[in-house]
Design a binder for these strands. Structure first.
Lengths: 337, 337
DNA sequence: CCTGGCACTCAGTGCTCCTGAGTGCCAAGT
DNA sequence: ACTTGGCACTCAGGAGCACTGAGTGCCAGG
């Protein structure tokens, strides 16, 4: 259906259009790439490509521009992920290794990725549900108030205040703390609800009300924080691109946590880097953008996702390279800390 | 120098320009405001106002536009802060009262303020240094590792990992924890360094190395986190305004923590709401924006600042009203929790 | 199947002209 | 001394128009 030369033509069109941001014509193509044929031949090929929906003309007397379908083909079959340069790798390393807590890792990552790709970077916090309990702590903070601190093996720390309505003795707290830790330590957070179910029976009857309060808050925390936090950076890079009037829509979308979730979330398959192009995006305001997403995690365990959002007209190979590299490094950093 | 009518003219110009976003001419002024004089008279007044630098013409045959100096006069002498409507107050209340931790309060606040003013909202986290210690907790998380958790009376929780290089007995930890809490409880964070200085002497000799490690991390935390966190929201509202090509500069500025710090920070005086207009701003990229800032805190204690950033052409009375109201409510929320 | 040639299309540019909002100034009125 | 109507002047922005040139589609010949 599409012979090799036509694919080469499509590749050339994508590359040229990405770098110049102008519709590319048959003449320009033969000049810049040595395809070994004349412009007229190219024109025939382009006519076919257009008929199949891979490219389009903004207006009759203009060159061709790749369609979403064209980019899709390019990403799937005509390009390979471009590894980062040594300098870039080193930059990542030095930039990320200084981080001292999870917030810091995430905020550095998102800024780094934005800078590296000159686009908008999006990073999801390591999912609570996929990590496991390292420690649970109960701290009395005031009369009738306890603080529950939950520390996970990914370095995430959640804290919540518990209203006990009654004074609780140091001793009871000690018991509860010990009980919680022996039962939950090392448990995957997803398994906590089950493990918690039969805990009340093991508590001295006098402490039951307090235990109930603590456990309900604990479960609440797991559920609530399951709606995972996502941050982004590099919005300024959007202004550099010409988004006609839809820039506003894109910014609005970025500020919606829910939209960001979907943005990263719905990539089902397990390849290293996934790309969603233009109208493949679920969200209305992001129809003219593409998203490059990768999982990150420790070892085989996927903790969360990160990615980059930019115009469909983006340098996919490089962006994919950057996203993949950063995802790997973040995994290493998390594993090491 | 400027009689009452000239001031009225300036006020009218500001109001009209803010609402229409178009240079306002003498005719339009007499039509929309009943000033009781003819356009010709207004023209004379406008000539004077222009000579004094309060207004300017974009080009010869156009109406007048307020200058930064004009807005300044308007804000200082020609307008009063406009209180929010009842509906708006209620919205604030319902929006903020659901918050369950500090992060939540801040993130709700910033989104609320952005929505209320239809501009970019900026909120600074309650400053660590002005709050005081509610509780210090030490938790062993692994062989040779302790977690230090610092809880302040503003609900802020800081945690850091301490490498002790050696196993520490539960007992030693208990001692240290008790010691820290008795010495530091209720202390302003600014006073902690001094109080910490003579702590090592009170520790059993065997525990000295551990204590030293803990204290140094504690001090580090105070210093590092003193660089206070600032968040913003509502960037999408910028796109609605026409910032010529400087939108990019504004976005860049917003993503720089340092710039945001300065933005909120350098308002010296103690009036409820301060306004910085256009070129009064320290930062290069924000020369065409104005900032409306207010302190917030509990009682007389100022904890931090929040504010709004928008085009110099903004509705100052309403914006100031919204900022002031939100600042008060946040104070109440923080006091109540 | 490729190629050169040719007629055709049309966005973008530069030009002029025109309109209308708005000004500044002046001389007359209160 | 201030206000006012009148009037000439300015100039941004829009409409109309011709021109240019990049780019196309198609066809006949290699």
């Amino acid at each position: 259906m599409l012979d090799d030369r036509k694919l080469a033509v499509l590749r050339a069109i994508v590359e040229d259009y990405v770098s110049t941001n102008e519709p590319v014509g048959s003449k320009a193509l033969t000049d810049r790439h040595n395809l070994g044929v004349s412009p007229a031949t190219i024109r025939n090929d382009m006519a076919v490509l257009e008929e199949q929906g891979y490219i389009a003309q903004p207006h009759t007397s203009a060159g061709r521009v790749p369609t979403d379908k064209g980019y899709r083909l390019f990403v799937d079959r005509l390009s390979t992920i471009k590894p980062l340069s040594v300098a870039e790798r080193r930059a990542i390393e030095t930039f990320l290794t200084g981080a001292f807590d999870l917030d810091d890792v995430v905020s550095r990552t998102v800024r780094l990725l934005a800078q590296l790709t000159r686009q908008v970077a999006v990073v999801q916090y390591p999912s609570l549900s996929r990590s496991s309990v390292r420690h649970v702590e109960l701290v009395p903070v005031a009369e009738g108030r306890l603080l529950l601190v939950l520390i996970t093996d990914t370095g995430r720390v959640e804290q919540r205040v518990i209203e006990t309505h009654a004074r609780v003795s140091e001793e009871s707290i000690g018991h509860l703390r010990a009980l919680l830790n022996t039962c939950l330590d090392g448990l995957g957070l997803g398994d906590v609800p089950a493990a918690v179910a039969d805990l009340p029976d093991k508590v001295a009857p006098a402490d039951r009300p307090v235990a109930a309060a603590v456990l309900s808050v604990l479960l609440e925390t797991l559920v609530e924080k399951h709606e995972e936090k996502i941050v982004f950076a590099g919005a300024a890079n959007l202004a550099a691109v010409d988004f006609s009037q839809s820039l506003r829509d894109v910014l609005v979308a970025l500020e919606e946590q829910v939209v960001l979730m979907r943005l990263l979330g719905e990539t089902g398959d397990s390849s290293t880097v996934t790309v969603r192009i233009g109208t493949e995006n679920p969200d209305e305001g992001l129809r003219s953008t593409s998203v490059v997403v990768a999982d990150y995690g420790v070892g085989d365990l996927t903790l969360a996702r990160l990615g980059v959002l930019g115009p469909t007209r983006m340098d996919y190979p490089s962006t994919m390279g950057a996203v993949r590299a950063v995802a790997r490094y973040v995994g290493q950093i998390l594993a090491g800390s």
